[in-house]
Design a protein around this nucleic acid. Sequence first.
DNA 1: TATTGTTATACTCTATAACTATA
DNA 2: TATAGTTATAGAGTATAACAATA
Lengths: 169, 169
Amino acid sequence: MGFMTEPPTSLTPAQLGAYFAFTEVSSLVRHSVEKQLRSAGDLSYVQFQLLARLGDAPDGRLRMTDLADGVVYSRSGLTYQAQLLEQRGLVTRAPSPDDERSTVVALADAGRAVLAAVFPGHIEAVHELLFAALSDRDVGELARILGQAADRLRATPPRSAAPRQRKTP
Amino acid sequence: MGFMTEPPTSLTPAQLGAYFAFTEVSSLVRHSVEKQLRSAGDLSYVQFQLLARLGDAPDGRLRMTDLADGVVYSRSGLTYQAQLLEQRGLVTRAPSPDDERSTVVALADAGRAVLAAVFPGHIEAVHELLFAALSDRDVGELARILGQAADRLRATPPRSAAPRQRKTP
DNA sequence: TATTGTTATACTCTATAACTATA
DNA sequence: TATAGTTATAGAGTATAACAATA
């Protein structure tokens, strides 16, 4: 171990093991969850995340930019997904009264219904794929450890939402 | 906690916390690593995984089917990626002497070179995104816990490589 | 001038099904 | 007949850049 924070040129065996297990689990969880969401509610994973985020928000409403955070990495990508969700009647979009530049996305009743239809299977899949093999104590440890990593990622923006490019005249 | 393995209808708070942290970290790590691989070696994440898998294999050779495992979820997807890698000269493909139906993919020197070019930045990114916030002890715990989950996923195939469909005449 | 969001466009990737060839 | 891989094709998703409108 170095004693400061110079970029390391290799990973320790434990780090390698953790990284491999992490990628293996996350890729399988992601793939299985995507299939479940598609079959239970005809949702892509991104669409599910957007709906879930709205479901957590007060009044089920968020500005486009706030909705995007951490889910989608380009503005046009969000517009695209929001259009799909709106066409299906799962969300509504309306200009914000506060700031006329903003669009406020609101979870519609049909959107809540789809979330409700999809949740049980989602939870079951996550339990089966991630938690079935873990003791309660290990789940707590996992939450604590990954929480630390997540906190740091949030504090040290590796730029989730890429800032707008300057013109290249 | 139920005392058997009936499918649960909800997650405990600790499980929810672990799941959210897990998805948050894995999505950010994935996105950042993809950008790094693209800029350092013009590789997609899937292509990197395929090359890395070949790099780990004895003689740097694998049958298509073995190469696919856990990385790609359709045969045609693997053929597509293998073609791209072959066009760039990073791998070679040849029919297997043992079984003439099989194609053996071999890592070419150029492929090893790209892996070498990409590794340092990859390791640095993983360190920065995942391990910088964790103590050595926590890294060990993470490896142990996720290793358990991975073992179970391997033992309980949620069908990574979907079996071939029957004809619908 | 900076910010919010949309549009146009091109591209990458994936999946399904049909097909070939070998076991 | 079953398995290994390829091909054809179609669709979903993403990113870049140009654009309009508001702050």
